[in-house]
Nucleic acid binder design. Sequence first.
RNA 1: UAAAGCAGCCGGAUAAUCGCGCCUUGAGAGGCAUUGCUUUGAAAGGUGAGGAAAGUCCGUGCAUCCAAGGACAGACCGCCGGAGAAACUCCGGGCAGCGCGAGCUGGCGGAAAGUGGCACAGAAAAUAUACUGCUAACCACCCUUUUAGGGCAGGAGCGAGGGUGCAACGGUGAGGUAAGAGCAUCACCGGCGGUAUCGGAAGGUACCGGCCAGCUAAACCCCGGUCGGAUGCAAGAUUGAAACAGGCGUUUGAGGUGUCCGCCGAUGCCUGAAAAAUCGCUGGAGCUUGAGAGCAAUCUCAAGACAAGAUAGAUGAUUAUCAGGGAAAUAUUCCCGAACAGAACACGGCUUAUGAGCUGCUUUAUUCU
RNA 2: AGCGGUAUCGUCUAGUGGUUAGGACGGGAGAUUCUCAUUCUCCAAACAGGGGUUCAAUUCCCCUUACCGCCG
Length: 114
Amino acid sequence: MLPKELRLKKRSAFTATYKTGTSFHQDGITMFCGRINKEPFPTKAGFVVSKKIHKRAVKRNRIKRLMRESYRLLVKSSGSPLKYMSVIFVASAKLLNKDFKYINSAMTKLAGKL
RNA sequence: UAAAGCAGCCGGAUAAUCGCGCCUUGAGAGGCAUUGCUUUGAAAGGUGAGGAAAGUCCGUGCAUCCAAGGACAGACCGCCGGAGAAACUCCGGGCAGCGCGAGCUGGCGGAAAGUGGCACAGAAAAUAUACUGCUAACCACCCUUUUAGGGCAGGAGCGAGGGUGCAACGGUGAGGUAAGAGCAUCACCGGCGGUAUCGGAAGGUACCGGCCAGCUAAACCCCGGUCGGAUGCAAGAUUGAAACAGGCGUUUGAGGUGUCCGCCGAUGCCUGAAAAAUCGCUGGAGCUUGAGAGCAAUCUCAAGACAAGAUAGAUGAUUAUCAGGGAAAUAUUCCCGAACAGAACACGGCUUAUGAGCUGCUUUAUUCU
RNA sequence: AGCGGUAUCGUCUAGUGGUUAGGACGGGAGAUUCUCAUUCUCCAAACAGGGGUUCAAUUCCCCUUACCGCCG
């Protein structure tokens, strides 16, 4: 789990990030990026796993937690990215029953764009 | 030994590193200000998903609004007794069905108040005798003949047979008769009613009676019982700056309260939204242990502990060892290390999903003593 | 989290205790034409799954599954 200041929380912030439109895709994870950051605040991150992916909450939570843990380790090793104001990671059905290593490699590739 | 039945338990453990939510203590820093208030908060300690948290199928509490009156409608329940706040809940008993048995299952009032339905087949599907059919005892008729014999189904009698169908107006056997029939005949069985008796009741048992009443109420309905209604914690309360919405006086066309009577609604004057924060929010019809009452559900008493409370939503990631399981195989090696599944106001049930096992009691079969 | 609704041929739908489950579009075959279109004839194709009530269930009742909606 991330500390509070690195989490994207408000609904308005989510819709604003989606509107900006820059997005990247890698191995079942889609990354939406918000506006370019003008001040050196750390990027806020949000994680989305839709109900369409799986009906059961346990499996959705598992994907979400793995993505979050991977992002946390990246922040810990290389510092918080500063380029964008916000970033959202959206999972697809491809990630069902995948382990930490698979998701971590995908997240690392995406983080290279930050 | 094998196969079953019932009741119950468990829902992994330990350690290391890196993290998150909440609570307590709170170094330090900032602001107001003058030794108090407030904001932020390093670090430490504590604590952090379930037996179903699920489905939302029932029932409660809690909250707001409407109404607080009457009648009707409506919804739900339905063998008896008990438990429970209540329940499409639980326990015990009865009855019916299933099973060799231990046991299991049951939405289990009324079809003799009324209405409706019962396709196809069948004579007929509910007022049975319209059809087919049986009968020459009786009346009528005919023939032979003489005190009777024969014919004839017109009258009359009969409800037995009619292959159908889920179902045919009690069943089987005997007696009886012209032919027959529950036929004021008989035996056994089924159903109905009465009496006696056992039981707290549902109901059981015995005897007697007349002689029969199809199925369907998860069709309408009847009987008995219960129920203020609506909305649901995104209920709702408080704080909160500006565009825009709510509260108080006058009148009856449309609208609302399940419907009707009855009651609120439309027009003029005064105060406040959304986002956000705090509360609601977890100490409870609760949990554990022991004693007592009861066949049991459950209740009573005593002691003890309380430790999720998030809000884009924490309870995680990686690694090692062990319990445990599987395979090879024999002093070891390899693999797995789970299944169903994640709190969102709380509780009582029901239903559905679920891995590897363990414990106790009981039944049946086989073998041995 | 809470509260509702729907499910019928490939698609859109009708039916509501006894039906050969009807229709339209689409598909296939044939006829008409020199060929195609149009038109005509014929054919195939469905009651979401499981259990119960009933003589009989797409229909009535219960459970499950899938989909959709409301509420900020």
